[in-house]
Simulated assay, not measured.
Amino acid sequence: MTSVPAPAAQATRPSRPAPGRPGRRALHGRGLIPLLLGPSVLLILVFVVAPAVYGLYLSLTNTQLTGFAARDPQFVGLDNFRSLLGSDDFLTSLGRTGQFVLFSAIIGQTVLGMLAALLLRRTWLRGKGLFGAAILLPMVVPEVVAALTWASVLSSSEDGTFNRMIGLFGGSAAAPLQEWPMLSIVIVNIWRGIAFAMIMFQAALEDVPDELIEASRVDGASAAQVFRYVTLPLIRGPVFLYLLLTTITTVGVFGLVYFLTQGGPGSATELTSIFIFERAFQYSQIGLGSAASVILLALLMVLGLTYVRLTKVEV
């Protein structure tokens, strides 16, 4: 066996870059990152940042769709914001939106979605595929189709599905969309959003170690105690992430409520999204509608920061 001379062995070793100078791979990686992120950043700038900035500009003007203000809009400063903050209609719509988000998204969808995810983890449950498909079905139905379907179900006529069901028990015909409008849209929105909650919570529950749950049960903890003190703290991040996402999407719900009630009867279900639509497009007050959108965006940012602080995640 012949030994390799020291100079030859040193020659076969790959040369290392000098300290302080990036290698070829590092330079290649640095050039690849902007290339990969560039299209996404461009799309965000064009379709998110630019409309938001333009909406902020419109909120400071008296722009309208018709009339002299449509041809020559004037800068009015904070007049639109003062008008909205002094308007009972706008403040009431914010209150209705808060109720709608609280009962349909934060409470209804979260609780029922968590129960559905916990049920799908049970080994004794039969027909999991059918159960999961029934919950996922509302998610794939278009919003307009879902609204028109529920309008037929909750119709005040005797041929409506709801009235037929209560008729089987001897009840008289009712008009849910006129008698209980807010409760009706809350139930419909819960039905539509359970699937997303179930998917997120089921994915989070998969990361909970079974060993911790078994150890808790061995120590004598009940099912409720295991969920409260073991499972829930471990999935705290995904839960608050879901609350953030569902709050944003529920605040922006428009088609589902508009096609069901159009904000009525009267203004019983006039959410802020419907208020903005009416002021901007029905009354042609683009500047006022944009100012309402900016206020709603500011409230959402405050809620988002609150959720992030509750999860103790640094952003």
Rank of each mutant, 00 (worst) to 15 (best):
E211H: 14
G132E: 09
P73H: 03
Y54N: 12
A291K: 01
T12S: 13
W191C: 04
G252F: 13
P209V: 01
G113W: 04
T246I: 15
R82H: 12
I295L: 14
T123D: 15
T246N: 10
F281H: 09
S93K: 08
M165N: 00
L299W: 00
I213P: 00
L42Y: 03
L56K: 02
V313Y: 02
L56Y: 09
R82M: 06
I106T: 10
Q282H: 11
L78Q: 08
M198I: 06
L296T: 11
S216P: 00
L241H: 02
G264F: 04
V4W: 15
I199T: 13
T123L: 10
P138I: 09
L27Y: 03
L56R: 05
A70Y: 05
G252N: 15
R192S: 11
T12R: 15
L94D: 02
F75E: 00
T61I: 06
I44P: 00
S293H: 06
T97G: 04
R13M: 10
L32E: 06
R217E: 12
Y307M: 10
S104P: 07
F240W: 06
V53E: 09
T246K: 09
W191K: 06
S40P: 00
N163R: 01
T63H: 14
L305S: 11
I185W: 02
L118T: 07
M139Y: 14
L102K: 00
G20E: 13
A52N: 10
Q225N: 05
L271R: 04
Q178T: 10
A6G: 08
V186S: 00
V294N: 04
V239G: 05
T2D: 07
L300K: 11
N189F: 05
V41W: 01
L256T: 08
R236G: 00
L60W: 10
A9C: 00
V144Q: 09
T149C: 08
T250M: 05
T61L: 06
Y307C: 05
W180P: 00
G220I: 01
L288V: 09
T311Q: 15
N62F: 12
S184L: 11
T247Y: 03
I106Y: 02
G264R: 15
P51Q: 07
A224D: 12
G20Q: 10
L232E: 08
P181M: 02
V48H: 10
L112A: 09
S222T: 15
A203I: 01
S267F: 04
P34T: 06
E179A: 11
S284T: 11
F103W: 15
V48Q: 13
T250G: 07
L136N: 06
F196A: 14
N62K: 08
F90M: 02
A223D: 15
P176E: 11
R71L: 13
L310A: 14
P209H: 05
Y229F: 15
S40L: 14
G95S: 12
M114T: 12
F196T: 15
L241I: 15
L78H: 04
L177P: 04
A146W: 00
A291H: 02
Q99H: 02
V4E: 11
M198G: 05
A174L: 12
I187A: 11
W150Y: 14
P7Q: 07
P14G: 03
A291P: 01
L91P: 00
I107T: 09
V76K: 08
